[in-house]
């Protein structure tokens, strides 16, 4: 067990590698109740979030639909990354744990004259159930109408089922669900899942799964000093409509232009096919200058090491300084494994 921003959490329940495999091949459950849940309600909830977030909640055309976004400061640094869902009452934002206080303070500071309420929901827990068999196994625990509704959910879609909110979102690159439910229900659901072949998965496998999926970890791959442009988050920035003036827009517009001219870093994927493990903090040497590994690990699916690294844009020849030696690595798109399969060339 480790202390994770005040939460006592398991790195693994036995073997990190076994847990990783369980999610890629079958189904596992993560207790991610440490994540911050904030409900935004009120007449101005939508214009407020359109001003707060780099992605555009106006794109959430139906109830339950989700999108991933960065929340930026004026300099274009990433205050946090989050998922926002459109709900009947407004919007639900799920952000990181270690960033809880600063996120809430920032969200309140931007609220200004918008008419809305920002309500943290410490009364809710989250279980993430992921893996090829995950949806079937969750559906076995639900009544037939609910099971039908869950089976019909598209990716990044969710639905309220009585007190539970169930959505097809996650952090593993596998099919799966995130279930947001009252604290009083969570232990019961956890036990039921475990008795239906859904094994518990710790933080260690959560990290290797998300890294294989090329998903960022806040505080490692980006933070308040890093632009989303340098963190492979361009896909989550809604540039249109042009008149939407979200916090940080001016700064990251400039970053994008600098990157186009070859003067701004990018977050790339690195692959080491020989023995050794790339680790966070290792220096990357390229023909355009130095970069740094922001996340690195052994990939249990690929059986070799992979990493995310912030390096000068358009660099092709990358070497990593590992334990005093320079080792050549291959640069790839930062997306390594989806649905159990290798996805880079």
């Amino acid at each position: 067990m480790v202390d994770f921003a005040g939460w006592s959490m398991p790195i693994h329940y036995g073997s990190q590698l076994e847990e990783h495999k369980q999610v890629r091949c079958e189904a596992g459950v993560f207790d991610v109740s440490h994540m911050t849940i904030v409900d935004v309600e009120g007449a101005d909830a939508e214009p407020y979030l359109r001003s707060l977030l780099a992605n555009d909640v106006a794109r959430l055309d139906v109830l339950g639909r989700a999108l991933y976004s960065g929340m930026l400061n004026e300099n274009g640094g990433v205050i946090d990354d989050l998922i926002v869902y459109r709900m009947a009452f407004g919007f639900r934002v799920v952000s990181n744990c270690a960033t809880r206080e600063k996120d809430l303070a920032w969200m309140r500071s931007i609220a200004g004259s918008f008419i809305l309420e920002i309500n943290e929901r410490p009364d809710l827990s989250i279980l993430a159930v992921h893996g090829p068999a995950s949806i079937d196994r969750v559906c076995k625990l639900l009544d037939s109408d609910s099971a039908e509704a869950v089976r019909n959910l598209g990716n990044f879609r969710g639905q309220m089922l009585d007190q539970w909110f169930i959505a097809r979102t996650g952090y593993t690159g596998e099919k799966g669900l995130e279930i947001i439910l009252p604290d009083k229900d969570v232990a019961g659901l956890w036990d039921q899942l475990l008795s239906h072949g859904v094994n518990p998965i710790g933080l260690g496998a959560r990290d290797t799964l998300r890294l294989e999926a090329g998903m960022n970890l806040y505080g490692h791959d980006m933070d308040e000093s890093i632009s989303p442009i340098a963190a492979n988050m361009a896909f989550s920035i809604a540039w249109d409509p042009l008149e939407r003036d979200f916090v940080g827009r001016k700064a990251i517009t400039a970053h994008l232009e600098q990157q186009r001219q070859g003067h701004f870093p990018e977050l790339a994927g690195l692959v080491l096919e020989q023995r050794g493990v790339l680790r966070e903090g290792q220096r990357v040497i390229t023909e355009n200058g130095d970069g740094i590994i922001t996340s690195g690990s052994f990939s249990p699916t690929l059986k070799h090491s992979i990493a995310l690294a912030r390096i000068p844009v358009n660099s092709e020849n990358c070497q990593v300084e590992m334990r005093g030696k320079l080792v050549a690595v291959r640069k790839v798109r930062p997306n390594f494994v989806r649905f159990g399969k290798k996805v880079f060339e």
Partner: peptide, 9 residues
Amino acid sequence: AVVESVKAA
């Protein structure tokens, strides 16, 4: 010798 685990070298 060097041992590399998921956690560290």
